[in-house]
Amino acid sequence: MSIQWEGVMPAVTTKFTDTDELDLKMFEKNINAQLEAGVHGIVLGGTLGEASTLLDEEKRILTKTTVNLVNSRVPVLVNVAEQSTKAAIATAQKAEDDGAQALMMLPPMRYKSGDKETVEYFKAVANNTSLPIMIYNNPVDYKVEVSLDMFEELLKCDNIEAVKESTRDISNVTRIKNRFGDRLKIMTGVDTLALESLLMGADGWIAGLVCAFPAETVAIYELQKAGRIKEAIDIYRWFLPLLELDINPKLVQNIKLAEVYTKIGTENVRAPRLPLHGEERKQVLKIIEKSLGNRPKLPDYKNL
């Protein structure tokens, strides 16, 4: 099984009710907004999806619900972020059973694995699922870097196909292309470097603010792909203050507040997270309201 590693794939938020249950009604509303905007895949249970707070059964409900909603229009990816190799293999196999088309994988959680341990962890999961895998390389937040030499070993597994490139080093896109060509697809994972990464050869964008602004996000991707760079840059410059809400410890709360303003989400987060309050909330609202006040008119990006 393989998928097209390209385009915009939102790392969607998980919606909760006021009583801390899964809010599948609002979740469906957001997924439909993403599909209407023209996204190219859906990523479940990532950092924005509050993966560490979800029960195993909740993850499975979200996967099955999304697979049914999407109905094969775009691939559904499930994040694997576990503390043990055994648990990671089990998560991958459940995702496959529940209809996911691919996996996004983080290094082991809590324990800071060494290079060999990290490689063996990823390979063990790859060897126990038929699903294609995207390695999430985010040493800034997760303290483990997957080097090019490590990828050389990992690519011996045919189903390790892509990287979510979140090192914050824009030149890494070129290093990967120079070393691996098209064997390792690149999905940029940092909103504030997204357009730069795409212009340097990244194949797609695992996006955050897309959760609240799906059309603008997809428009940037489609415009740059069509060579209409100035138009893409103009939208991107408008978008940047919002995109910066993603590179913040409160990214979940920030983006959920933005979803409220675009009417495709709620502020509900799962404890220990709490909704924004006080001066912090005022500052985020100022950014959101100012951006909505001069929201750009988009070209017909779906028919470029």
Rank of each mutant, 00 (worst) to 15 (best):
L257A: 06
M150N: 03
D56S: 14
R183K: 15
T63W: 01
G201S: 13
S166P: 00
W5C: 11
L54G: 13
K177R: 15
G181C: 09
Y136P: 07
S197P: 03
A88K: 04
A194C: 14
S147C: 00
E152I: 01
L223P: 05
E222F: 01
K15I: 00
S197Y: 04
M134W: 06
V173S: 10
A232K: 02
S166R: 00
E50D: 11
G7T: 10
T129Y: 10
V74Q: 10
N268W: 04
E231K: 12
K185F: 06
Q253E: 13
M105R: 06
V67Q: 14
R110A: 15
P214K: 06
I176M: 15
G227S: 08
A88F: 08
A215G: 00
I3A: 11
I3C: 11
L195T: 02
Q224W: 04
K177D: 03
V43T: 12
Q283C: 01
G46D: 10
P299C: 08
L131E: 11
L304K: 08
L184W: 05
T188F: 03
L195F: 05
E57F: 12
E196R: 04
L209S: 07
M134L: 13
D23K: 10
V218Q: 03
V269G: 07
N248C: 07
L198Q: 05
T129N: 13
K64C: 06
N303G: 08
T19G: 07
L54Q: 13
R179M: 07
G189P: 07
E58R: 13
P249Y: 02
Q224S: 14
N268Q: 13
W238D: 06
L257R: 10
T188V: 10
V269C: 09
T266I: 05
K164F: 11
L155A: 12
N68G: 03
G208N: 03
M1I: 07
A226D: 12
E152R: 13
V125Y: 05
T167F: 01
I61P: 05
